[in-house]
Design a protein around this nucleic acid. Structure first.
Lengths: 239, 239
DNA sequence: CCCTGTCTGTGCGGTAACGAACATAGCGCG
DNA sequence: CGCGCTATGTTCGTTACCGCACAGACAGGG
């Protein structure tokens, strides 16, 4: 786990001023994040924030009837627990590990100490939050107007950007839950993508073969989000 | 315009510390906001923020092909231009006046001066932003899972909460643009609501007759958003 | 090596919303 | 007072996705 024990794998941590990162470093706990693990429940007060490195976490809203929809994806470009510094302490959504891996955990009060200095750390976190807002907005637009095919492409690309490989370990069932659609729909859409030679998958592992091809089939939503992350965080969202 | 010339009609302004409000007061310009007026365009740098009092403004994303979808509604409970203090200066969405009325305009640098003090004003604005995030998230969920009927109810209620009457001046065409659906769909859904005795409408004016009835037909999304606004801002979103 | 569970594929009827075309109806202005 | 514009109503075929049911297929453990 040598290479993976490096906080700078998380782009937000890497973008912190060196002094702050040093100050944090002894408090950053490397944490293994397992598939399906819930980092926080709706309404729950936060004790820690998380900085994913090799994992992906979804912000998911689960409805009364049990069906769900993903609101945003957070990976090595971001942080989980923004409601901490936004002042609400909690959100109505749930944070679920969508792709197993590692991340760093930091006690809430330590982050808040830095945030409250109203310096570069605060501004970085707020810019990240704005990028996240864009992602959420675009999710809303995409849910309204785009086909399952397009959405699947967008989703694959967003997930891929948050890892450092072109493999995703996730079943179609899981993807369906994230997109808030039927599993069969994902099977069909993924089948088309595979036939078109863009991806390859088998039993829970998806490999992207032709990334430009995927981008061509995705709706504009992907590009909008990517561009905004790049603009606001000036490091590429891509691993 | 006597009664309408009172900044405290905007709940966010009203919640400011008295000293700050006093400091702002000579700089708050009462502004008439006309139907369809664009307060800011995607990507445009902000010179002012807006505090609606009797108007409603939609955050709208307009796609390449011209169709659109509303991301959030801002009325007398909020502020337009959060990307200013979030640090991005602009957003990919557009702010369009959805219901004509008044609001106050404040120069960006004046707001930033207060925000940068990292005191109660900043915390208030951030809590508002988190509430707005909830609204956006729930829009995404609603777009995914709920019927046009349910969405129309949610939307009417959200709009109503941001005015001080039970009348809305807007055509079905306009509502369709906001919801990102066909006008005919709105006609049909609104027809059902009228038949059920919940609303009454004619030529661009909608009157809500049975509000509890509307709430009963709305999806859970409305309640989630309302509750979160109340929780985070501790003043009711309702006019 | 088979058995079991998980993952993926497929077919079917049902439905909500779509796109387009067109019909009515109220309002305002000349 | 009627003409024209805007708002609303209605129809029809099409489509994307749903819910359900079930069939194959691959993997790992006993």
């Amino acid at each position: 786990m040598d290479a993976s024990d490096n906080p700078q794998q998380n782009h937000l941590l890497a973008a912190l001023p060196a002094t702050v990162l040093k100050h944090f470093s002894s408090h950053l706990e490397l944490t293994s994040m397992h598939l399906g693990e819930v980092l926080y429940e709706p309404g729950a007060q936060l004790r820690h924030v998380y900085f994913p490195t090799t994992s992906i976490v979804s912000l998911l809203y689960v409805m009364e009837n049990g069906s769900s929809a993903e609101i945003a994806i957070v990976g090595n470009e971001g942080i989980l627990g923004i409601s901490l510094f936004m002042g609400g302490q909690s959100t109505p959504s749930r944070a679920v590990v969508q792709s197993a891996g590692f991340g760093y955990r930091l006690r809430a009060n330590l982050l808040m100490q830095e945030f409250n200095k109203a310096g570069p750390v605060m501004h970085l976190l707020l810019r990240y939050t704005q990028a996240l807002i864009t992602q959420m907005s675009q999710t809303a637009v995409c849910n309204r107007h785009h086909s399952l095919n397009q959405q699947l492409c967008r989703w694959l690309l967003l997930s891929l950007d948050r890892l450092s490989s072109n493999n995703l370990d996730m079943t179609q069932e899981l993807i369906a839950n994230m997109l808030g659609v039927r599993r069969e729909g994902v099977t069909e859409a993924a089948g088309k993508l595979q036939q078109a030679g863009l991806i390859h998958y088998s039993r829970g592992r998806i490999t992207v073969v032709d990334r430009p091809g995927l981008e061509a089939q995705a709706c504009e939503c992907y590009a909008v989000v990517k561009k905004e992350f790049d603009r606001l965080l000036s490091f590429p969202a891509t691993g």
